[in-house]
Design a protein around this nucleic acid. Structure first.
Lengths: 256, 256
DNA sequence: AAGTGGTCTAGACCACGCA
DNA sequence: GCGTGGTCTAGACCACTTA
């Protein structure tokens, strides 16, 4: 029976249904821990346990010492395929905010360039030899005063050493153009998107609260010959991004 | 100082670094709550708090009453673009397991068909009129005895009422073929991928543990004229999927 | 039977932002 | 200064699985 369900979960259930039913709106304030404890005739610890469930579901945030509030999710559009740039009728469903452009608040990025031994994830994809070093261009993108995402691009050091690619500033014509000029034009890209909880380091750099998962987008760029040139590792907080692709259907296997 | 860091977080930090450094391997057993409490000269409650941090980071699982164990993540390939089906050299980096095919264990799916009022998310994308009903084909895909993902496809009732699309069984030639025969061939698809924590219902249906985020993939299919025909809502647990796209680069705006 | 994690109580002291 | 959430203690009883 439902009576067997632990008290803290029943507390979470009730608050959750108030949120999903719309009785509590995004931004709205929840009762305090003390009030909840009193209402359910239990201790604060148990009330805290119930609230913690919702925090980890990403439904509420604790804004100390003001209280708990229903969380807002306001994702912006993130498009790996930037060929399609003009507004698309299909996208009317979104507020047309684009993660790389912002929405009036000033967008900026901090750039940092380093030479490192590639992490295994990168090494495999660049197919570099054991011991080979790679150059990495680390960008943290910010809109207003909020960090939006992280993009770290890795290229074998042998390709870009001493070139403009390694300038820790904006490169007006784009870094891919630079690679192109160096004889490594990227013509095909493999995107891999996985979903996980952030590392403590990412929580720090992006200012993430609990209950905020991230997408990790690895884009591996290849030349016409099929050689990997660059791997970009993008970390996208779930509360701030929707990833968009458009594609045409050909000879697709259908769901049955 | 680090001494200002709460005890339970320092406990989590130490265990986490043992895991990420590889001293504790996937599948490995952690000390029990009691042992941790003793080692740090605190109570079990505080040890539990530390362990809970790692559980919600997706790093460990509690397997009662055996203990806590380092979690395994074994994602399979999920490809919205199924045109590219043959093995690709670029994908050598993965074990070649495909989410729709399984890896030797028997794959199956439970199908259920219903007529419902569309949820707002769906209604907007199908552009149906207020009050219009839609048909939904709900699939839960299973490999071995583990649920893998959920795919719910929505189509305006006016299009598929009384047709084979509504059969709650596999349709050998594919449901998109059926739509095609009805005069609604899907030629363009908009994919939207967002990342969030699962709802309690999804936790149930997919057997998810805490610390497991999901990707929600909405695929909206359009006819040549640009009218939306079908919306598929796929829910993909992060510990069991990597989403793959391949694309060619044309006139792309470059990162700077 | 023993040991594990799951839940719960009844307190306590603290840091912080706001009125 | 007050109320908030953040942390912590020192216990308790329970259900479950394995030996």
């Amino acid at each position: 029976m439902a009576a067997r369900r632990p008290l803290y979960q029943r507390i979470a259930d009730e608050l959750r249904s108030e949120i999903t039913a719309g009785a509590l709106h995004p931004g709205g304030k929840l009762p305090s821990e003390g009030e909840i404890a009193a209402k359910w005739e239990t201790t604060r610890s148990t009330a805290v346990a119930g609230l913690r469930v919702l925090v980890h579901e990403g439904l509420i945030v604790a804004d100390r010492p003001r209280g708990y509030f229903v969380r807002r999710w306001e994702p912006m559009i993130y498009r790996p395929q930037r060929e399609f740039r003009k507004p698309e009728p299909n996208l009317d469903i979104f507020r047309q905010r684009v993660a790389e452009e912002g929405d009036g608040r000033e967008a900026s990025q901090a750039i940092e360039v380093a030479i490192v031994a590639p992490p295994p994830q990168i090494r495999t994809r660049l197919a570099t030899k054991d011991g080979d070093l790679v150059a990495v261009r680390r960008r943290t993108r910010t809109i207003g005063d909020e960090a939006y995402n992280i993009q770290d691009s890795y290229v074998p050091l042998s390709i870009v050493q001493g070139t403009e690619w390694m300038t820790p500033e904006d490169v007006a014509r784009g870094t891919n153009k630079v690679l192109s000029e160096l004889g490594y034009e990227i013509v095909q890209i493999l995107d891999e998107i996985s979903v996980r909880m952030p590392t403590p380091d990412e929580v720090d750099r992006l200012g993430l609260g609990p209950g905020t998962p991230v997408a990790e987008h690895l884009a591996t760029g290849h030349t016409a010959k099929g050689d990997p040139v660059q791997v970009s590792r993008n970390v996208l907080p779930g509360d701030r991004h929707v990833i968009i692709y458009e594609r045409t259907r050909r000879a697709e296997e259908d769901p049955k």
